[in-house]
């Protein structure tokens, strides 16, 4: 039944599940930002560098990266966009303003297309979409085109830009 198999294969390729598996394999080759909370001091230089990259001035409140401080600053957890294999922000965007940059693997927002509806923000489980409190416009990490300013700026080694997850490389 070669014809049936061919039809099935063609149908399957159109299913998002298959796309996801496909992109998961691809993403293992792409670099992402990995975080090490045990090295983070909460200094927020990453966030300042991010705001400079995104907006041309300093304000960590407008950064795409977040640092959660716990236990009266005993611990700081940096949270960054994972540029997910299955990016919900991309899938819910009603105007296709969010796409994957094929060169860097980053999930990016097209500022011209964004209609500030807030859907991407609502469906990011890590709350990595930054909505401007005055305009509602959505912003997110774009990996600075492949050379993230946050990673460059961190003096404590709490961020790295690398292929795969640290766990997979046997690091802690």
């Amino acid at each position: 039944m070669p014809v049936l198999i061919a039809i099935l294969k063609k149908t399957a390729k159109n299913l998002s599940h298959w796309e996801t598996v496909d992109s998961m394999e691809k993403s293992r080759l792409k670099k992402r930002i990995n975080t090490f909370f045990d090295r983070c001091t909460g200094c927020s230089l990453c966030r300042a560098a991010c705001s400079l990259h995104m907006f041309g001035g300093f304000n960590p409140n407008k950064a795409m990266i977040r640092v959660e401080s716990r236990w009266e600053n005993l611990v700081h957890l940096p949270v960054v966009c994972r540029h997910c294999d299955n990016p919900l922000c991309l899938r819910v965007c009603p105007v296709s303003a969010i796409t994957r940059d094929e060169r860097t693997g980053a999930v990016v927002i097209d500022r011209e297309k964004c209609i500030a509806c807030g859907l991407c923000s609502r469906f990011c489980p890590l709350e990595m979409i930054h909505a401007d409190p005055e305009t509602g416009a959505a912003y997110k990490c774009d990996l600075c085109g492949g050379d993230p300013a946050c990673v460059q700026m961190c003096p404590y080694g709490a961020l790295e830009y690398a292929t795969g997850d640290p766990a997979e490389k046997g690091e802690s």
Binding site: D38, T41, G42, C43, S44, L45, A48, P60, N73, L74, V75, H76, P155, Y156
Partner: peptide, 12 residues
């Protein structure tokens, strides 16, 4: 147990 830094400080 751990270190903390003020805003923008590489000394911590």
């Amino acid at each position: 147990l751990s270190r903390a830094a003020c805003f923008g400080c590489p000394i911590g």
